[in-house]
Design a protein around this nucleic acid. Structure first.
Lengths: 236, 236
DNA sequence: TTGAATTTGTTCGTATGTATT
DNA sequence: TAATACATACGAACAAATTCA
């Protein structure tokens, strides 16, 4: 048993994961208390605590002060945290990490075009229309419409019906909102362009015109791409 | 100060992250020792250890016994761990999580077609040809060619030049290799079909034929989709 | 080869805050 | 309000890995 000591932390993590798997626990289900796990696994409370910390940061368990631990939401939040930090850190002065994030977002929007048209062509989702309208109002008032923008793209993804993709895109958005402010203020003209592009995307989907949709997506991301290039050039 | 106690853990995590950011540390650079951080931040070593544990599980730092702590690789490994666990756990008996992963992989392969043809049309990458050849040999010998399959798709992604996408796909593959064995053995006919589809993808890229490429991608994933449907039906 | 110094890994004991009953 | 159970935090001690003289 003495040899086990050297990796009590890791093995405790695995033991708890195995326990959840074997018991068939679902998100929200309760885990045994720390002291119970201590005696079951034969390790100290500190080790269990560190293991819980690891699992908690992976959103595999959720620790609630004074109440106990439950199985976590298994979300992609650790992905977001790591990605945001990496994008913030890896500033080679050329914003290449951010550029990859934006490129990925544009790629997703392009890729879902076919599926959107197959599902929504000929009709118009009232919520999407409302979001574009709100966007226009906010923009006219000179305020940021980032949250609405985000809701718009999230709504589009609902029609695709892939929860994993939706979560990944949410993570990319999270990074986006953290890092984009470093680029500086965007020109008013660019903002108008972005708002219009959203409307054109909806028009194209309703009309079932894939090429027009792709063009609108391109117009949507062009201002952002330009902003990144400008920032990269000025930092160099 | 007494009020701070309740969140010393979180704030310690943030403090260390800020330290890395402010010092402009890069992956591999050394961090102060635990005891130094203790005195700098005015918290106990236990708290620092738990914070380090959190950061380590996010691959933001890397802890080496007896040597010290360095800035981590900032990889997507926590994403992989969480996703694999989630896919293993969330067996509603219909493999819906796995289906989403596969759908996403297919979507990526479809989406990069245009970019691949723009970059590689008219030529043939010798490494890709070699991989398909090896795949054929392994398949003929009745052995699994999962690793070669993985290398094939990773190679394709190199031409796209988005490191973030490459890492995400790697994560999806990781989940794939962990969970797919639960589906049971695939039929020999399906295996042949998959091998051929890889060859057809290369042919289509060389010929600059996007439609043929998309068709080959569809053929590539069809056996897998069928296997998932079968498994879902039999488990129901 | 030995051994000291440094650094992380593990455990224990204690005190304190917090939620449930 | 009191009792209980649990999580949070601290500090001290020793174990194990690594480095260097």
């Amino acid at each position: 048993m003495a040899g086990m000591r050297s990796r009590a932390g890791e093995s405790t993590v695995d033991a708890i994961k195995s326990f959840i798997l074997e018991e068939g626990l679902r998100p929200g289900d309760s885990l045994p208390s720390e002291s119970e796990i201590c005696s079951d696994l034969g390790v100290s409370r500190s080790s269990v605590r560190e293991a819980m910390r690891t699992l908690s940061s992976l959103d595999i368990v959720q620790v609630k002060h004074g109440r106990g631990t439950t199985v976590g939401g298994l979300s992609l939040s650790p992905f977001i945290a790591g990605l945001a930090f990496r994008t913030l850190l890896n500033e080679d002065g050329r914003f290449s990490q951010l550029a990859e994030v934006v490129q990925l977002r544009e790629g997703v929007d392009r890729a879902i075009g076919e599926s959107l048209i197959a599902r929504c062509s000929g009709q118009r989702d009232p919520e999407l229309s409302r979001l574009v309208e709100e966007m226009r109002e906010q923009s006219a008032a000179g305020e940021s419409f980032m949250m609405i923008d985000r809701a718009f793209h999230a709504r589009l993804l609902e029609f695709v019906g892939n929860g994993l993709l939706a979560q990944i895109v949410t993570a990319l958005w999270e990074v986006h909102t953290v890092v984009v402010p470093q680029l500086g203020i965007q020109a008013p003209h660019d903002i108008d362009e972005t708002v219009c592009a959203h409307g054109h995307m909806l028009d194209a989907i309703e009309a079932g015109d894939l090429d027009a949709y792709l063009e609108a997506v391109g117009a949507h991301y062009l201002p952002l791409r330009r902003a990144i290039e400008r920032a990269a050039a000025s930092a160099n």
